[in-house]
Design a protein around this nucleic acid. Sequence first.
DNA 1: ATCTCCATGTAACTCGTTACATGATTTT
DNA 2: AAAATCATGTAACGAGTTACATGGAGAT
Lengths: 195, 195
Amino acid sequence: VTAASAETLPTLGYALLALLARQPGTGYDLARQLKDPIGLFWEAGHSQIYPQLGRLEELRLVRSRSARGRGPRPTKTYAITLRGVAALRAWVGQPVRRRGGRDELLLKVYASWVAEPAATLQLLREAEAHHAAQLATYLARRAAAQAAGAADAPPSDPRFTDYATLRRGIGHERGRLAWCRWLARRVARAAPGSA
Amino acid sequence: VTAASAETLPTLGYALLALLARQPGTGYDLARQLKDPIGLFWEAGHSQIYPQLGRLEELRLVRSRSARGRGPRPTKTYAITLRGVAALRAWVGQPVRRRGGRDELLLKVYASWVAEPAATLQLLREAEAHHAAQLATYLARRAAAQAAGAADAPPSDPRFTDYATLRRGIGHERGRLAWCRWLARRVARAAPGSA
DNA sequence: ATCTCCATGTAACTCGTTACATGATTTT
DNA sequence: AAAATCATGTAACGAGTTACATGGAGAT
């Protein structure tokens, strides 16, 4: 029974379970988190989240309590159930189904031989700025996590998995940044006067 | 007019233009390429490609010549037009619209504190094997590209942008691999006896 | 004989994005 | 007074995946 429901859940469902496994929250809370903290590796808008929470509740993977809200509708606070934790645990063990890595910047660079060097440089400068900013926020968060002892926590501690994903985020941004800089220098060298 | 059509094209359209800018080909050729060479940064199935080629032709960004094929239908060979090159060039210059980075492995790791260490290790070993294999193929291709002088070609040479994207692919795989290994060691150390 | 490769399309469905719609409380 | 934040939903559309459908040529 659990296996059947686990097979039909989209990845977003597990993303929501992963957040609710840490602490209960409203759909609004989850939407906010899927823009920043784990938003970095799984994004979703609220229009996708509310229906998905409904489906998770039908499957008894989450439970909700309604309270009179400040808006027109009641405010629902969701919490994960034991079945929900079990489904999440089972999913983590299954191998990742890798679907198309889609990277627009790489595609543009691949096509950039048709463009003017100045346009390519502009593109790279923007990407560089973005990655530098992202890196800075990750580094700040890592510093905070380390101060809270996340680096030395056991893998069964959510703070540790926070730290582990942050570490990857930092590596990713650093790698991209270095590549952008290398390419920009390379393009600029070949076409002087388009800085 | 060009600007209007450029705004309505999905990224897949530009991926196809980028491939056709290098050499003409059939829908089948493009589908094959979008599984391996640039498939690494933009994937698509043939059911998405054929209709998109039709739309590109309506917009006069590509042109096709039909020949009696070996199948039931004629075989169409597509080539990019001058308008197509112009549209591609314009697109490269525009900043990337970044949409949700979706990374299932990171999400699983983020949730892995609920799982058994053995399951997490299994997951990491599989990811590690995948990235190692990918890295090996990239390294082989880079060696071939370097032997062909791609590294020293100007940025206006498609061989150079091949090399540049390959370089990023290698950096990406190396970074992931190192992270997987670090995490696996960390998880194994905390839970001995689940190797 | 069967399998793989070449080659093209459509249909059904799921996933994701943008836009529409509503309304109270808190901050500026 | 206006704007941002909290809070929930639906509708329409666009992008992506899986499955259906066909059939010749060459290799095993």
